[in-house]
C-alpha cells in the first residue's frame, strides 16, 4: 500500500545554503553538494564547507537519483503530525550509485520509501521520485525500490 504523507502539516523553510537544493527538487532534480576544489560530494546540503579539503568554494552535482539501501528503520509510532496517517512507513539511508569517490568514500542520503516494509531490504536498488506538496514552492523527494538484488538482508522480528 502506498504511504501517504499529509504535507499540509509540514512547513519547510529553506535557508541561503539550501534554497538552490529545494529549487532543484521543484524541477525534479536531486542534487548533492560538490566541492569545486577537490570534487568531494556530500549530503545534507546545508553543510557549507568541504570536510575533505576545508574549501568553501562549493557547488552542486546532479545525481541520477539511483542507489542501494544501506540501512532502514520502520516508524510505527508517529512523532510528526504529517506522518500520523502514514505509519508504518520506512525511512532508508541510500548509498548513491554515482557518488563513489576514488578514496572509497560514498555519499549517502536519506528519505521515505513509497514501499511498505515487506518490500524493503538492505541491498535492494532504489530510485528517487518527486512528490508535490501543499506548498507550491516545495517538492519532496521520495524513494522507491526499483529492482531486485542478491545478498539482501531483511530485519526479522
Amino acid at each position: 500500500m502506498p504511504v501517504t504523507i499529509d504535507y499540509s502539516k509540514l512547513r519547510i523553510i529553506p535557508d541561503p545554503d539550501t534554497r538552490e537544493w529545494w529549487d532543484a527538487t521543484r524541477q525534479h532534480k536531486y542534487l548533492v553538494r560538490r566541492c569545486n576544489r577537490c570534487g568531494h560530494k556530500w549530503f545534507p546540503p546545508n553543510i557549507p564547507a568541504c570536510s575533505k579539503c576545508m574549501s568553501m568554494e562549493i557547488g552542486w552535482f546532479e545525481t541520477a537519483g539511483k542507489g542501494v539501501i544501506h540501512s532502514y528503520v520502520v516508524v510505527v509510532q508517529p512523532i510528526v503530525g504529517a506522518f500520523v496517517g502514514a505509519v508504518p512507513y520506512v525511512v532508508a539511508v541510500i548509498e548513491l550509485d554515482d557518488c563513489k569517490e576514488e578514496d572509497g568514500s560514498v555519499t549517502r542520503v536519506a528519505g521515505v520509501l513509497t514501499n511498505d516494509e515487506t518490500e524493503v531490504a538492505i541491498g535492494l536498488p532504489c530510485e528517487v521520485l518527486f512528490e508535490a506538496t501543499n506548498d507550491p514552492k516545495i517538492v519532496m523527494p521520495r524513494w522507491r525500490v526499483s529492482g531486485s538484488a542478491e545478498n539482501t538482508w531483511k530485519f526479522s522480528e
Binding site: L10, P45, V73, V112
Partner: peptide, 8 residues
C-alpha cells in the same frame, strides 16, 4: 529540512 520531511 533534511529529516523532518521524511518523518525521521
Amino acid at each position: 529540512q533534511f529529516n523532518m520531511g521524511w518523518g525521521w
